[in-house]
Nucleic acid binder design. Structure first.
Lengths: 157, 157
DNA sequence: TATGAAAGAGCCCTCCA
DNA sequence: TGGAGGGCTCTTTCATA
């Protein structure tokens, strides 16, 4: 999809407040409400807008433990990597799963838990299920100071 | 704020699709539209719902580089840590800033960039501005396989 | 092909019982 | 809490450029 200046403006305005109405966005970028709605829909369909999220505070619903993990998988069993990815993707306690393309790690993700003990058991169950899995690094996370991202979109077309 | 079963249900339903209407959520959890709206509003005010986000694909808007960074700050100058946190928080290229409470790192965050060169210059400018800043680890990220989190909320009331 | 205006359906906030 | 009223929002349609 080719983005023009108006798309870029809409995305920037929307990122600054995702719940603004199309009419308000239109006032800012200089388009009618219906044009803005149509463009937003097109951006969603093109995958430029990947997702809408409601962020629930893990701490306030009983998950104070957050751990950032880097791990590698030396798959000895066929299909083990695919199974691991599937398990992580469907694990409600796993957030932010990404592949890693440098260094000694293959995957980066964050795990939440109700306490240290359940965290340990959770990780242990993964290590038991995936023999080639190695934890390369783990860091306990404290306060979340910023979440999400406001990509400043410039148009180069 | 004390959550009851209905709040938990609402949060779970809402996380599975943040753009559902209060009426639909109400149908699922067994409440009227107005009751659901009131409860959602209360959850936002209590900070249980931290945020609503629209996720823009960095790749599709010209930022294919994503780097996960762990860094430490041995502040030699008074207020340097506060200044760094402020700079990172307000840096549009920085996502997901968290404190780190274990190991040799103090902060974890992700940086996006248009190319490797601008990434290097970006990091270099931080190192120039904050003399006590050390990069403990950096990992280039590839595909994002999962974002956000659906905290499975149980009520223990 | 994209726009703006208008109509219709749906949604949310507020009030009241 | 549920229900009803009013105002806002989105989608669709249509005419226009």
């Amino acid at each position: 999809m080719k983005l023009d200046r108006l798309d870029a403006k809409i995305l920037n305005v929307l990122q600054s407040d995702p719940r603004q109405s199309a009419a308000r966005v239109g006032d800012i970028v200089g388009l009618s409400q219906s044009a803005v709605s149509r463009r937003i829909q097109a951006l969603v369909e093109a995958g430029v807008i990947e997702n809408y999220l409601v962020v629930v505070s893990p701490k306030k619903v009983g998950f104070p433990i957050r751990v950032s993990l880097l791990c590698s998988l030396h798959a000895e069993v066929t299909g083990e990597q695919a199974r691991l990815l599937d398990a992580l993707r469907n694990d409600p306690f796993v957030a932010r799963l990404s592949r890693v393309t440098t260094g000694d790690a293959d995957l980066a993700f964050t795990v939440i838990a109700q306490d240290l003990d359940s965290y340990e058991r959770h990780i242990a169950s993964y290590q038991q299920a995936f023999s080639g899995l190695r934890i390369v690094r783990r860091d306990m996370l404290g306060d979340e100071l910023k979440q999400g991202l406001s990509v400043p979109i410039e148009v180069t077309m």
